[in-house]
């Protein structure tokens, strides 16, 4: 018998009777009201040191362009989605390099990209979280390695919280390689409980909230 079988055998020999479905246990944790979702989402993100910029379906690329100019970004990479292509088209004239990301070396990734652009598939109001489903068209490292991460979210994709997202069957199925909840720029309080931003990941997070409702 190998380790696996011995471990499982020991567990089976002392397993209890199965317990009832835990989700039947009443839970009075309050869900935020729909009318409060947007305000709560914004508040949570700004409490966590992220910027939230409201815009509409027509003017968001312009607003992103002004963010890029203000922050002195010269090299931008985006995932390969409609929003990314639109953004690249509208800002490529003003930047040194803006393009849809392809195969790139770690060297390039770590040293030559100022900002990454990602699109969130949902937002969680209770915690101010962005749900990012990564994959071939949404690389994992773009929201991690460049010092600035810009994430677009449509207000219509907001839900109350993570529990509701899961309960409504809105987690991708089957699960892709990597799904992320991002709720602010990277941070640490490991030195005497003093908060510092830009621990290992982005120092700044800008959320482009498209008001499509």
């Amino acid at each position: 018998m190998n380790s696996r079988d011995r471990i499982l055998q020991r567990l089976r020999s002392s397993a209890d009777a199965p317990r009832p479905d835990p989700l039947q246990t009443p839970c009075d944790w309050p869900l935020p009201e729909r009318s409060e979702w947007l305000a709560l989402f914004r508040q949570n993100l700004s409490d966590n040191h992220a910027e939230v910029i409201e815009c509409d379906d027509n003017n968001w690329p312009e607003l992103v362009a002004s963010v890029l100019a203000e922050k002195g970004v010269s090299v931008l990479r985006s995932g390969n989605h409609a929003e990314g292509r639109l953004l690249v088209d509208s800002v490529s004239a003003m930047l040194d390099a803006a393009c849809i990301t392809g195969e790139q070396s770690k060297e390039t990734l770590f040293h030559q990209i100022d900002a990454g652009f990602s699109v969130a598939t949902a937002g969680l109001a209770e915690t101010g979280s962005l749900v990012i489903v990564t994959g071939a068209n949404e690389p994992r490292t773009l929201s991690l390695v460049p010092p600035l991460n810009i994430v677009l979210l449509r207000a219509s994709a907001m839900v109350a919280n993570f529990s509701q997202l899961v309960a409504q069957g809105r987690m991708p199925s089957p699960m892709p390689t990597n799904v992320l909840l991002i709720s602010g720029p990277s941070k640490t309080a490991d030195i005497q409980q003093t908060l510092a931003y830009g621990a290992h990941g982005p120092k700044q997070l800008v959320v482009i909230l498209v008001m499509d409702i």
Partner: peptide
């Protein structure tokens, strides 16, 4: 209320992923 990152990993890199 939540950590900065909640990272859900279900597979190694798939074909086409960068």
């Amino acid at each position: 209320k939540i950590s900065t990152y909640f990272n859900m990993i279900s597979a190694p890199r798939k074909a086409g992923e960068l």
